[in-house]
Design a protein around this nucleic acid. Structure first.
Length: 589
RNA sequence: GGUGGCAUAGCUCAGCUGGAUAGAGCACCUGCCUUCUAAGCAGGCGGUCCUAGGUUCGAAUCCUAGUGCCAUCACCA
């Protein structure tokens, strides 16, 4: 539509004012004015001198005469509001009416893929609310990019080695009495997490003891025997000590089983897992190579650095003086590995904004090393999820556990649903499934509707809403439409062409037609929030339509068919949009 | 201290590349279930868009400075 108008407007200026204009500025007409599309006349004043109202009127008249789709216009101040004909909307609707997965594009042949990394947990403690945001964002962005026409691989790198892992292992050895998930009935990740906390407790105790003996806090922190022992254990692990490796495998396996369960409940998945225990040595040869190229330099003690002061950053270490890899070394190696493993041209890292600096440096290093794909690396940086008491800290037990939270959400959904009592004829299992759908819908929507880069304040005392701009509200609208479609006992597949639109229908259709560009924009911006906001707007318009005009009770058969078709399309879009957010929709609720 | 991010209604958030009287939801108040699901609809109340300058016909949006909160600046990850 905009293209048609732009060409016409340019032609109009040429005819009336004998001038060429560069571009036309469009915007949606505000609700309080009549019209569908608005042209900002002010922008033309650079090319044509005169009164904006006069110019607007002349252009409006020109368009009304020369463009079929423009049925009327009005000018308010410097704004030319155009009324687009009903037939334009109706014919547009008819072309998309039967499109399966309207708004989604399929991947083009031969196009390279995008890899989205998310989750990437440590294997020493259970997943919490912060991981939930990460998982939901990563999963959703991956789905959105798929829908926008990209081939996508989902991945995570599991941080399964290092001193923090040894801490839980050591604590289990000392205090565990051979406990297992089976013997305790605990989820594996929970059990291991308990020992991570136990380590910290014992460690703190030893520190206090040493301080009492006259050491400074700093000395005490470094000399606590339990810490030294954990460090010993790490060395043994790296040396391949049989007993340590065996324990490591056993405990990690417990954690994986626990994680799998959480991921399944949350509804996220991965195409490939990377393990840090396999990748932590990667990148060293790249560093050696970069050293030759002069990208890095060696200090006297043998450590290798990169100087980024020209870019306004600092110097950064890429290899320790003892030749071992740091985090950065691994990330360099892993990135390269991934581009070898898959035919990629883009890699998205879903990692909190506390690591902004790290990724800035990483990308810069890869660019300096000469990888042309380095410019296609993207850090999907999101804000922290904070509690009213501040930051969540696993070691201090101030975390909102992922499993617990999902259960609580389901419980709330159950309470509300039972109170409303609309589920006659539903079996117990069906109901439980539904409570989960609604509870998780509330949680996921609550988190995803917020712009990723903003931090979220989560108050466990105030439960997530189920009314207003929420997941359940949107699910409810979907269920309502399903109810209508179940009751529609007539053939509504025929094409309706000649029809006069109710203003509610027109507004709704305008929103429907925006779905494809919303997906593209959400993909470009890596923002599920755009999908959430779009869907909310769509659903609000639908509910207003639903309560203003009769659908099945409509006298005129054409109207009735058309409104049913429109309802059906809206429900399809709700379902698709929610699929992009990883949220299911119920046929009743 | 250096660097980066954020600041919009009592609370939670929208606000696209600058554009019309700054929009939703929650909360509070008023109506609407003998028509398709009231987890809904219609309406009311509520704002120095952090502050001060600047650019512009026009600034919540762009620039500069300041204030506040958060993050980061380790041979940790």
């Amino acid at each position: 539509m905009q293209n048609i108008l732009e060409t016409a407007i340019k032609a109009g200026f040429k005819e009336i004012y004998k001038t060429d204009i560069e571009s036309v500025e469009f915007q949606a007409t505000r609700k309080d004015f009549e019209g569908d599309i608005t042209i900002v006349v002010f922008a033309f004043l650079r090319f044509v001198k005169g009164n904006p109202v006069e110019i607007g009127t002349q252009i409006g008249e020109y368009l009304k005469e020369n463009v079929d789709e423009v049925s009327d216009f009005n000018v308010v101040k410097g704004f030319l509001n155009l009324v687009i004909s009903d037939s334009y909307f109706v014919s547009n609707f008819n072309t998309i009416k039967n499109t399966k997965e309207f708004g989604f594009s399929s991947p083009k042949a031969n196009e390279k893929a995008v890899m989205v990394e998310y989750s990437s947990p440590n294997t020493n403690k259970p997943l919490h609310l912060g991981h939930i945001r990460n998982n939901l964002l990563g999963y959703s962005v991956a789905e959105i990019m798929k829908a926008s026409g990209k081939k996508v691989y989902k991945t995570q790198i599991i941080n399964d080695r290092g001193i923090h892992i040894c801490k839980s292992m050591l604590a289990w050895q000392r205090f565990g009495n051979g406990e297992t998930p089976e013997s305790t009935g605990l989820k594996g990740d929970k059990l291991v997490g308990n020992y991570y906390v136990a380590f910290d407790k014992a460690y703190k105790k030893e520190i206090a003891q040493l301080i009492a003996e006259g050491k400074t806090e700093e000395e005490a922190k470094k000399q606590a025997p339990i810490l030294l022992e954990a460090q010993q254990m790490l060395l043994k692990w790296e040396a391949g000590d049989e007993a340590v490796v065996k324990l490591w495998k056993t405990m990690n396996q417990w954690v994986y089983e626990g994680f799998d369960q959480t991921y399944k409940e949350l509804g996220v998945d991965f195409d490939k897992n990377y393990y840090e225990s396999n990748t932590y040595l990667l990148g060293k040869d790249v560093v050696a190579d970069g050293l030759k190229k002069g990208v890095f330099y060696k200090k006297e003690d043998g450590s290798v650095w990169i100087d980024l002061t020209d870019e306004g950053l600092d110097e950064k270490i890429v290899l320790r003086s003892d030749g071992t890899a740091v985090y950065m070394t691994q990330d360099i190696g892993t990135a390269i590995e991934r581009f070898k493993d898959f035919d990629l041209d883009e890699l998205v890292y879903t990692v909190g904004n506390e690591q902004d600096y790290h990724f800035k440096v990483l990308f810069l290093i890869l660019e300096k090393l000469g990888f042309d794909w380095a410019k296609n690396l993207y850090h999907l940086s999101y804000g922290m999820v904070d509690l009213p008491s501040g930051k969540m800290k696993s070691r201090e037990g101030t975390v909102v556990d992922a499993d617990d939270l999902m259960i609580e959400m389901t419980n709330t959904a159950r309470e509300i649903s039972q109170e409303l009592g609309k589920l006659e004829g539903y079996k117990i299992e069906e109901r439980e499934e539904l409570y989960k759908t609604i509870g998780l819908g509330a949680l996921k929507y609550y988190i995803l509707k917020v712009d990723p880069k903003k931090r979220i304040l989560f108050d466990p005392e105030e439960s997530v809403d189920f009314a207003g701009n929420t997941g359940p509200f949107i699910q409810y609208t979907y269920a309502r439409i399903q109810s209508i479609l179940r009751k529609a006992d007539f053939d509504y597949s025929i094409e309706i062409t000649d029809i006069e639109l109710h203003s509610k229908e027109k507004e709704l259709m305008k929103q429907v037609l925006l779905f494809p560009e919303t997906i593209q924009s959400a993909a470009n911006n890596h923002s599920p929030a755009l999908i959430a906001n779009y869907t909310y707007e769509l659903v609000k318009l639908y509910n207003s339509f639903y309560q203003t005009v009769p659908i099945l009770g409509c006298e005129d058969l054409n109207e009735k068919i058309f409104r049913t078709q429109l309802s059906s399309k809206v429900s399809e879009i709700i379902k698709s949009a929610f699929k992009l957010l990883g949220i299911n929709v119920p046929s009743r609720m």
